[in-house]
């Protein structure tokens, strides 16, 4: 969980480090990224209050460094939302994986 140089730091706590030059290019949100943001907003503090912003931040700090570093911004927020919804018992990991497989199949069929 901790930073390699300073065990008191979480891996998300990167202020003052040096991750190199800033790429100024700005990309548009992908449709699924907007979907994920909308679902999260509708379930979160601005909607059903199933969770609040601090919980989704806590999930980001709990997912582990390898996953945190591997995921991009919207992947991270989707992973955090999933972690919280599973914790709160809205669905199980197994249910979700099964549904993802089902949707992948449906989409593959639609592509044929």
């Amino acid at each position: 969980m901790a930073d390699a140089d300073d065990p008191r730091r979480g891996y998300h706590d990167i202020g003052g480090k040096d991750y190199g030059p800033i790429d100024p290019e700005v990309t548009e949100m992908k449709p699924w990224e907007r979907q994920s943001t909308a679902i999260s907003n509708a379930l979160g503090a601005a909607g059903r209050h199933i969770y609040v912003t601090d919980e989704s931040r806590r999930a980001r700090e709990q997912m582990g460094e390898p996953l945190y570093s591997d995921l991009d911004y919207y992947e991270r927020s989707t992973e955090s939302m999933k972690m919280i919804l599973v914790e709160k018992g809205l669905f199980t990991d197994e249910e979700l994986e099964a549904r993802m497989n089902e949707i992948a199949k449906r989409m593959a069929e639609a592509r044929e």
């Binding site: 992908k30 449709p31 699924w32 979907q35 994920s36 679902i39 509708a42 379930l43 059903r48 199933i50 995921l71 919207y74 992947e75 989707t78 992973e79 939302m81 999933k82 919804l85 809205l90 669905f91 249910e95 979700l96 549904r99 993802m100 089902e102 949707i103 992948a104 989409m107 593959a108 639609a110 592509r111």
Partner: peptide
Amino acid sequence: PNIEDGEPGRYELMTYAIRELVMEKGHL
């Protein structure tokens, strides 16, 4: 999803699966 985009990534699939599950279960 736009089928010309090819195979969806894990988090794209997860987004659609979460949407279906929370709506079916009446959370949204």
